[in-house]
Nucleic acid binder design. Sequence first.
DNA 1: GCGACAG
DNA 2: ATCTTGTCGC
Length: 274
Amino acid sequence: MERDTCDAREASSSADIQNSWIEAQDSLKTRLVTEDDFRWQLPTTTTGTTTTTAIGGGECCFGVLKYVGGVDISFAKDDPSVACGTLVVLDLQTLEVVYDDYSVVTLHIPYVPGFLAFREAPILLQLLEKMRTCDHPFYPQMLMVDGNGILHPRGFGLACHLGVLANLPTIGIGTNLHHVDGLTQSTVRQLLETKGNLGEDIITLRGDSGRTWGAAMQSNPGALKPIYISVGHRISLATAVKIARMTCKYRIPEPIRQADIRSRDYLRKHQLAG
DNA sequence: GCGACAG
DNA sequence: ATCTTGTCGC
């Protein structure tokens, strides 16, 4: 049990770890699907009521999107390593929570920008797996994630990571812009302002390279601050935006908002926050 | 060298 | 992410 007085012989430096993380991201990224790849269909909303798209006049062959999942993690105020992962499932028609589950763990991996998944994905995957292995009838048909999808330095954020590993369609929702490919808050603000005069509340996030990274949407009529929507896995940006719109009761899409609120409540109620 | 950097 | 109550406003 010799006590080291210096870090010279550490097994791996943080640079080594980050390089291994980059390799893992690049490897998982080969399995990423950025187009619609699911068997359900979106409900089509008409004025006031929600109806399903008619197929052959009868019942839909593959079902309609009904169970939308949301995941988030909150942290204890005094100890940032104590985290509560939360999975909720909402009924898309009513936006009511029909399932929720929580897992409090101690995290040993720090948050490093660009590598959020290595800190947060394990606990969230565990919650999904628990639900899937018991064949829960409300297992989500798709998942909304608090964090970006392809809007990420290497095009593989938390939403992609979770989508690939859980083999679920996912959408990334960010509250703040992770600057990538020349995109900045000020450019987004300017573009939204211009679009706003034309009655639009959304812009496509196109970087200097010409690549489309996602969309910025002013989901709350009054507020200027947008949310950042990006493709996670097995879903197109157009579909992701539609679903984000359908689930926005307030600024943050309801599945994520509920996961966020309940996650924090859970820590409070269990007096794990201090 | 300096700033930026999802949660 | 978290520390934090009420408060101003639509």
